[in-house]
Amino acid sequence: MRLIFDGHLDLAWNAMSWDRDLTLDLDRMNRAEAGMTDHPARGRATTSLPEMRRGGIAACQATLLSRSRPQARKPEGSPRMSLDFPTSDLASAHARGQLAYYFLLERRGLLQMIRTASHLDAHWAAWESGEGEGPAAPPIGYILAMEGADPIVEPEQASAWWNLGLRSVNLVHYGANRYAVGTGADGPLTSDGVRLLKEFERLGMILDATHLSDTSFFQALATFDGPVLASHNNCRSLVPDQRQFTDDQIRLLLERDAVIGVALDAWMLAPGWVRGQTSREVVRLEALADHIDHITQLAGKPTNVAIGSDLDGGFGTEQVPAGLDRISDLQKLDAILSARGYDSAAIDAIFHGNWLRFFRRTLPA
């Protein structure tokens, strides 16, 4: 079994907004949702901490996910699954609650925050020595990320989040916020967005280019001189949709030596896939390898592509490729990539080596 670094998981949001006990065995966690009808993903989760360990997922980027949307109307009934809050103060406070959840899991020895490059090296060495088995197994490591910068109430607050351990931020999720325009719309950075990027440069914060609209994407990369990654993004030339990167965008990221994590959401893998209508059988795990191949071909070598599964991003097995029923099934990519001619070193790079190289270079020493 190869160790995996997953570039994008929404662990705390799943726990706090879906009422999921991530410390449970995956099947037990899903059985607890039997009969629930508030979302198609109920009872179909792919991700829990024991399942991550079973799949050799030694580390990940774990997000804080909360949006400020004054115009959004909460759904009737329990609003907990909603990402949207009427003010940035409330979005920020909710993100602090998600961080508190990570800290609680740390106190129980289940997670370990990775703040520095030396910490990353020590954590990875501990997993390599025993691959996470036995009662003395090391915790799963996580680099704290933020999906959408809404919880940063103003640019100057970025330093407070940095001190709490935040290391990677994408400016916006869906639509527009205080800083930029994201998926489903298009437009430039705001003046506050430019100020926030300058604050990121000063701090050493990593910019995640995921979810940026085309106009905001090109402006952000022209404005920001610090390190850039794309935690969970696929290729527009294979699946035409604004959510994906064009080849020109990928080439620009490659020029910055960014790493792009490919994502497992079915509609990002199969052209024309429609949520709630298209069968998951339409797309198989081999489709993810198509996106890995495409980025590798643009780069000329498999040094800038990795896994950013997003497997807990508000969907379950109803919206992932057939043949992948739990996050540990990511190990099936090994045989798929090997059959396509990737050697062992290249597969290791895609599974974890490219993320390790990137974060060793960009995290504080």
Rank of each mutant, 00 (worst) to 15 (best):
E128F: 01
D290K: 05
G35I: 11
R31L: 05
W124C: 04
D325N: 15
P155C: 12
V262I: 04
S129W: 02
D257R: 07
F200A: 08
H294N: 13
L330D: 13
D247L: 00
E154V: 10
D186E: 12
G272W: 12
D310H: 04
T296D: 14
H294S: 14
E286P: 04
A45Y: 10
C235L: 13
E199I: 03
L111A: 13
R80L: 07
Q244N: 15
L269Q: 09
T47S: 09
T37F: 09
V181H: 14
R275H: 11
G97V: 11
T215Y: 09
F359R: 09
L311R: 00
L285T: 14
P86Y: 03
S82G: 05
L24G: 10
G7P: 10
S159V: 03
F200C: 03
N163G: 05
T362I: 07
V169R: 09
G276S: 01
S191E: 06
A58V: 01
T246R: 14
V305A: 09
L298R: 01
I140S: 03
Q331V: 00
R360A: 07
E133Y: 03
L105T: 07
T303C: 15
A306V: 06
D6T: 10
G56A: 13
G109M: 08
M205Y: 08
D19L: 12
R115V: 08
D186Y: 10
A72G: 13
E131R: 01
F217K: 01
S17V: 01
S68Q: 14
H294I: 11
K74A: 15
I336T: 01
A258R: 01
A158G: 07
S279P: 01
L26N: 12
Y142G: 02
Q112C: 03
H173N: 12
S78W: 10
F200W: 02
T46W: 03
G43Y: 07
R360W: 01
L24H: 06
G323K: 04
D89Q: 15
A95K: 00
G182F: 05
A93Q: 09
H173V: 12
A15L: 00
A15W: 06
K301N: 10
Q219F: 11
S168G: 09
I140W: 00
T278R: 00
R360L: 06
R69A: 02
P50L: 03
L288A: 11
T116S: 07
D343R: 15
L99I: 02
L288E: 03
A185Q: 14
G56N: 11
M52G: 00
G300V: 12
L356C: 13
L269C: 06
D293G: 02
D186C: 09
G272K: 13
A339G: 12
K198M: 12
A158D: 09
L253P: 06
T362W: 06
A117W: 13
R28Q: 08
E318I: 10
R360G: 11
L11F: 00
W124L: 04
R31G: 11
N233L: 08
G130E: 07
A266N: 08
M81G: 11
S92F: 05
Q244L: 15
R28W: 02
R53W: 12
I350L: 09
M36D: 01
I307P: 00
I206R: 05
L238S: 05
P50Q: 05
A220K: 11
L83N: 06
I347P: 02
P240G: 15
E76P: 03
G353R: 06
L285Y: 02
T246H: 14
